[in-house]
Lab assay of single mutants.
Amino acid sequence: TTVVVGNKKYTFDNPEAAEKFAKKVAKKLGATVHKTNGTFKVK
């Protein structure tokens, strides 16, 4: 599962961990999490 934050990509074996990370980053940046085909995008 990939999490994309700006131009950085983070890969997780565990989708739950990926989602948690994405939400944490989004909260910090005041952004939102978008899920597309198993990829979480923070923007």
Rank of each mutant, 00 (worst) to 15 (best):
E16G: 11
K41F: 15
K23E: 12
K9L: 10
K35Y: 15
F12E: 00
F40A: 05
F40M: 13
P15M: 12
F12N: 00
K35N: 10
K20Q: 11
T11K: 14
F21Q: 01
K35G: 05
F21W: 12
L29D: 02
D13L: 10
H34N: 06
A31R: 04
K28W: 09
K35L: 14
F21S: 01
T36Y: 12
T32R: 07
K28Y: 11
N37K: 08
G30T: 03
G30K: 06
G6S: 04
G38N: 09
L29G: 03
L29C: 05
V42R: 00
N14H: 08
K28G: 05
K23F: 14
G6L: 07
P15L: 10
A31L: 14
F12M: 02
K41P: 05
P15K: 06
T39V: 14
A18W: 01
T1S: 10
F12S: 00
K43P: 06
T1H: 09
G6V: 05
K8I: 08
K9I: 12
A26N: 00
T11Q: 12
K43A: 15
G6A: 06
K23I: 14
D13S: 12
K41S: 13
K23L: 13
T39E: 15
T2D: 10
H34M: 11
K43V: 15
K8H: 10
V4A: 06
L29S: 04
K9S: 11
A31M: 14
K8D: 05
K9N: 08
T32E: 09
N7H: 11
D13T: 13
D13Q: 11
N14F: 07
A31D: 03
V4D: 05
K23N: 15
F12L: 03
K35S: 07
A18P: 00
L29R: 03
K23G: 07
K43W: 13
A17Q: 12
V5L: 06
A26W: 00
N7G: 07
V4W: 13
V25M: 08
A17P: 04
F12W: 03
T36L: 10
H34S: 12
G6F: 14
V42L: 04
T32F: 06
H34P: 01
K23D: 11
T36R: 06
A17M: 12
E16S: 11
G38K: 06
T1R: 06
A18C: 02
A26D: 01
N14T: 10
N37L: 05
A26Y: 01
D13F: 10
K27L: 10
F40K: 04
K35I: 11
F21Y: 07
D13W: 09
V33R: 01
K20E: 11
T36A: 09
N37T: 04
N7I: 10
A26Q: 02
A17Y: 11
V3F: 00
K28S: 09
A18K: 00
Y10Q: 02
A22G: 03
A18I: 01
N14Q: 07
G38W: 03
K8R: 13
K28F: 12
E19H: 07
A31V: 07
F21E: 01
V33F: 05
T36D: 14
K20A: 13
G30Y: 04
G30F: 04
K9W: 11
V33H: 02
K24E: 12
A26I: 02
T11V: 13
A22R: 01
K43H: 12
A26S: 04
G38T: 04
A17G: 06
E16I: 14
A31G: 15
T2I: 14
K35H: 09
L29A: 04
N7Q: 11
K24N: 10
K27C: 09
T2V: 13
E19P: 02
K43Y: 15
T11W: 14
A18H: 00
N14Y: 07
K28Q: 12
K8S: 08
K28T: 08
K20Y: 10
K28E: 10
A22Y: 02
V4K: 06
T2N: 11
N14S: 11
G30E: 04
G6Y: 12
V42A: 01
G38C: 06
F21K: 01
T1E: 03
P15D: 08
E16D: 12
T11Y: 15
F21T: 02
N7E: 09
T39R: 08
F40Q: 05
T32Y: 06
K43E: 15
L29Y: 07
V25H: 03
K8A: 10
F21H: 02
E16F: 11
F40L: 15
K41I: 15
Y10E: 00
E19T: 04
V33G: 01
T32D: 05
T32I: 10
K27H: 10
A26M: 02
P15N: 08
F21I: 02
T2L: 15
E19N: 05
K27V: 08
A22D: 00
N37F: 03
Y10P: 00
K20G: 08
V4C: 11
V5M: 04
N7R: 13
K41V: 15
K41R: 14
N14K: 08
V25E: 04
P15A: 12
V42E: 04
P15E: 13
V42D: 04
V42P: 04
K24W: 14
V3W: 00
A31P: 01
E16L: 12
N37A: 06
A17W: 08
K20T: 10
K9M: 10
T32L: 06
N37H: 05
K43I: 15
L29E: 03
K20L: 10
P15F: 13
K23S: 08
G6K: 05
G38M: 04
K43D: 13
T11G: 06
T11E: 09
K28R: 12
T39W: 10
N7L: 10
K9Y: 12
V33N: 01
H34I: 15
V33C: 05
V5N: 01
E16N: 09
G6Q: 05
Y10M: 04
N7M: 10
A26V: 02
K35D: 05
G30S: 06
A17R: 08
K9P: 05
A17V: 11
V3D: 00
A17D: 12
N37M: 04
A31Y: 07
A31S: 06
